[in-house]
Amino acid sequence: MHKLLSNRMTIFVLVAPGLLLFLFMVCFPIAMSAYYGMTDWRGIGDYQFIGLDNYIEILTRDGVFWRSLLNALLLLAATLLIQHPIALLFSIFVTHAGRFEKLFRTVFFIPAVISIVVTSKMWVSVFHPNYGVLNKLLTAVGLESLKQDWLGDPSLAIWCVIFVIMWQGFGYALLLYYAGLQGIPKDLYEAAELDGAGRMKLYTKVVIPLLTPMVRVAVVIAVTACLKQMETIFLMTNGGPLNTTQFIGNYLYKTAFSSSLYGYGNAISVIFVIVCLIMTVMMNRVFKKDVGEF
């Protein structure tokens, strides 16, 4: 058996197709980006090798790049302070929903499986200044003064986009916390009840502390997920108005394909990968210890 399992030819046949495809489609392109990021190529014609100029420009002078990072941070703050507490609360609610438990759990996740093209179109139409449901609703309840050009207003648009992203990811966060709750042994609840602990105390003193490992996992995932936002922005605002809703993924795309700064766009790509790597390693160091089995 040992001889069979250490046969090099077999290992090669099993690993090579997947690994080579992966290297070719994921790792090699990043190396290409690192190269093109050191040029001033505009997509066509000749280009010059300009060393680290693009990278330095991005990190020291590019306000839009930093705005994109700031937006990721805003989204993260909203995710952790608003979406996650609500998701945690609702995951507890769901376990008390009796015969509807499964139904709610399923329904809450549905936005996450619907194409972003469809959900973005829906929210754009909801936020539309003239025909949008939101403004119509405000008029209907007599709050006409609150009507806004939701996605056209530089200070409001980012919050609308953040809301939509949180709405779509809500089921995902809930699913993680729900799975965490399922991992807590049932007799613990009973023991706490026997000890005379009330509902409130049961959750704050017993259940939520036991959920901490899952909270850590959810936080680690939220950090990279916030950095990687792109499709919703691309479809709803394309980073506008005035780059106030810009995210790195969309910014590099726009830079390369709309502004034809292909070299510069690639440099953003490389920094994007590095930021994601650093954040993941850091978050894992700080947060992710033993989580147990799920």
Binding site: G18, M25, P29, I30, Y36, T224, G249, L252, Y262, F272
Partner: peptide, 15 residues
């Protein structure tokens, strides 16, 4: 291979 979970898809679009 697990690096692929960290690398954003969007960083491969241009290259």
């Amino acid at each position: 291979i697990m690096l692929g979970m960290i690398v954003p898809i969007h960083a491969t679009l241009l290259p």
